[in-house]
Amino acid sequence: MFSDFMINTWTVASLVAVTAGLVGFFTVIRGASFAAHTIPLSTFPGAAAAVLLGVNQVWGLIVAAGLSVIGINALSRRGQPDVATAMTLVMMLGLGTLCLSQIGQYSQQVYALLFGQVFGISRASITPVAVIDILAAGALLMLFRPLLLSSLSTDLLQTRYLTATRLDLAFLIILAMASAVALPVVGALLVFSLMVGPASAARNITSRPVIAMGVTVLISLLTVWTAIVLSYVTNWPVGFFVGGFGALAYGAGRGVMRIRRWKPSPIS
């Protein structure tokens, strides 16, 4: 389990877990679950298009991630945001299925990109993941307070440069960067699950924002590590365990909340 080729898996998965956890904290407090689902999923056509055009996969992923951010952003200006997100998602996926159909080798590609293949990660893929993840995490930590403030009310942010709309866009771009690098290694589903599960539990464990963010990262790491161990042992897909733990974490969080709020009823 800790052999040479597994070292890459542990490294990349941990990097992805930390960044996805950080992004997830803001995803949950900003109510951006749909965007967090849409962006990783609509990044996947990029990989297929890159194969079709014979260019480096990284470029395909970045372009697709960029297109989905632009799509959500541009369509939201004219209509309901949830509809805009849905339309962006289906259009990107539609393009993805077209590209895949022209490549052949269809089903295995779909499976790998959607659900991930954490085993057999090459050493070369560690560097880009590490660089982009550190950049994304750094950007999120820099924007910590403005993101928190604008999630209370978009009118509270009154500075000239950091407007609520720009902040929304910045958040989507960070989300897209983190998704683009994580996708080929761990799959769209795993990225998304890590962005909602851990944070949904952490927010109920503590009321302090900085600590809640730390707890999110911790739960995210534990989820990924446990999932890798179980996946290694059972040979079942890692996404199954990550998704399951996400739901368990959410349930546990609700339980903690209930206990915290519970007051013994007066004896009559």
Binding site: S33, H37, F192, S193, P237, Y250
Partner: peptide, 28 residues
């Protein structure tokens, strides 16, 4: 609340797609 409703959808979705991953793996 819309935020919470979306989060619940997201968590259920993550778990559901995890199950899909498992069944597809078993299918293949």
């Amino acid at each position: 609340q819309i935020r919470e409703r979306d989060l619940v959808s997201g968590v259920v979705l993550g778990a559901g797609l995890g199950v899909t991953a498992l069944f597809l793996y078993l299918d293949v």
